[in-house]
Amino acid sequence: MIGSARYWREIPQRYRYEASKCTSCGKVFFPPRLVCSKCQGREFAQTVLAKTGTVETFTVIRVAPSGFGDEAPYAVGIVKLDDGVKITAQIVDCEPEELEVGTPVRLEFRRVQQDGESGVLCYGYKFVPRV
């Protein structure tokens, strides 16, 4: 299970979708990093991910890992955000049958996991279908 420091460190990304943009080639990284994988640039400007996108691919998890058992079945997808960045997250508030490649979604703030009954609550983003 995730510990406090490890969870806390990623708060800017999980709560506010903070990313970085390579100042030389413009590629956006989420999470931010030190070297651009496209042009090896080392200078970045801070940016924020787009809040809407479309489903690139998805699955419905029936056999869940520890800590997610109560939620199964649940959908997880890779979403291409409107700024072109792809991220992985759960897709909630929908029946798995409704989902398809291309479904428009938006980010919403949700509880993502918890460290047992007494541990830290871990928040972050999930996707919900938008009309």
Partner: peptide
């Protein structure tokens, strides 16, 4: 771990997403 597994994805799930994309 931070940007895939944090969200409850499993290995069968990751390959399933590759399958969904390939089928589509």
């Amino acid at each position: 771990q931070e940007y895939e597994c944090y969200h409850g994805i499993t290995f069968p799930g990751l390959y399933a997403m590759m399958a969904t994309a390939h089928m589509h």
